[in-house]
Amino acid sequence: MAEQFSEVDKLRAALLENAEILSDCPLVEEEPGSQEVLTRIENVILGVVTSLSKDEAPVLVLPNRSSWANVSFDSAVGLQMSSGNSVTTIRSDCPSSVTKFAHILKILSIIYKLIQSNSYATKRDIYYKDPQLFGSQRNVDFIVDDISCMLKVPRRTLHVLATSKGLISGDLCYLEEDGTRVDCHSSSIAVAVSSNVGGIKNIVSSAKFVMIVEKDATFQSLLDDDFCTKLCPCIMITGKGVPDVNSRLMVRKLWDTLHIPIFALVDADPHGIEIMCIYKYGSVSMSFEAHSLTVPSVMWLGLLPSDLWRLKVPEDTLIPLTKRDESKLNSLLKRPYLTDQPEWQREMEVMQQSKVKAELQSLTAIAPDFLTSIYLPNKLRYGGWV
């Protein structure tokens, strides 16, 4: 087996050899303690009270989480928030922002009590504390991230958890913070990604690599085919499309702990490429937490646009790019991190020139078991990633 996947073994050996260097790299950032987070909340409230004492309308200033002007690129970290050039002002005396102002203060008070009592709540719990005030779960989700960004702390230090949508399977065991032992070895049933990834400890694995799978359907197909044990010991994880924060935290946790190759298996389309970039380089909206969410070592295993022609994938399974696809592709090619990835650029240019995209399922047109029996084994054997 070791000989069969010699390229993966070489890469794994190199990463393990450099494990000490990797653990000291700038990706790891010390988290503030509970008392520090409480102090930062108190400072925000103090600012509000001070304004009221001066008979002034209180104002909250937040970094703009949707602006590229606030983001810089570092090849060792990915997209990270820089000293803000663009901010959002939430005024208590403005009809368009007074509701959000109230939401922020309410959630700050809930978070303060959670940290004081060393207890946790889900974002869903927070919404149901006052659904009439919050209006929708989405408002709560967005504001929790705004508060995390405003206080400059990772979301988990706010004691607010999110229900995970991701799944994980393979050669992996660990303990949850409450002592529950989780075994991901089952070949037929995946485990839900933890809602408290930060509390995971005692990770045990002999996996040779981690494979991020874009879609749940592909993940389930690989699970049904017993991919994690039939091919070689590995770990599979899916965020079921655009990944939630917990799925990204889990990939990062595995990287920090195991220092093994991380591969991405996505559709050969702009949407799949963007999802892979989120795992690798992060997103603009969560760039303030880049140090714990990005894994710049992620490699593109497939489906590569060049694979479509190399493997002679039947043309009737190829899908023409829509105007929206072309716009997304052009946008991706302009992203700052692509200058560091000439091979990725070339693959995207192949797609741009051919004007077609394809899902991983298109490989079944070659043979029903082509993905698991031929495509992935050969990719891993001969180093067919970029």
Rank of each mutant, 00 (worst) to 15 (best):
V140R: 09
S23I: 02
L249I: 07
G179D: 14
L293F: 07
M286S: 06
P270W: 03
P377V: 12
S82Y: 00
S306A: 15
L338R: 04
S164D: 10
Y382H: 14
T257G: 08
A76I: 01
P131T: 03
R91P: 01
T322M: 02
R324G: 02
T317C: 10
I237C: 00
D178W: 02
K253V: 01
G302L: 03
E343K: 08
I143W: 02
V77L: 13
D145F: 01
I200C: 05
P95I: 07
A367Q: 15
P336K: 05
I111S: 10
V87A: 15
V191H: 12
I147L: 06
H259I: 03
S221D: 11
D224Q: 13
L175H: 09
L133E: 10
N64V: 00
S247Q: 06
D55M: 08
R156K: 12
P233S: 14
E359A: 14
H271E: 14
D226G: 01
R252I: 06
P270E: 14
L360K: 04
I126A: 03
M348A: 11
S82C: 08
I275W: 02
F142C: 06
Y281L: 09
V191R: 12
S164E: 12
M211L: 13
L38V: 09
Q80Y: 14
R324C: 04
F370R: 11
Q116W: 02
S119V: 11
D256R: 08
P377N: 14
C234V: 03
V87P: 11
W68D: 15
E56N: 11
S34I: 04
T39Q: 12
D130P: 04
T89M: 05
M236L: 12
P26Q: 08
R381N: 13
L318V: 09
Q220L: 07
T339Q: 12
I366F: 11
R310S: 10
L329T: 03
D125E: 09
D146Q: 08
L223F: 03
I366E: 15
L114S: 08
I273G: 03
V48I: 15
S373G: 09
V193L: 13
E349R: 09
R248D: 07
K201D: 14
V160D: 13
N330D: 11
M351E: 12
L321D: 07
P296M: 01
I374K: 10
L363G: 04
P296C: 03
A190K: 08
N70M: 03
R310K: 06
F219K: 11
I104G: 10
D256N: 07
S83Y: 05
S188K: 09
I110P: 04
G170E: 13
S164M: 06
A69D: 15
S117C: 06
L293H: 10
C173L: 14
K280W: 01
K201Y: 05
M150Q: 10
Y120S: 06
S164C: 04
P243D: 11
A2M: 09
M276G: 02
L371P: 03
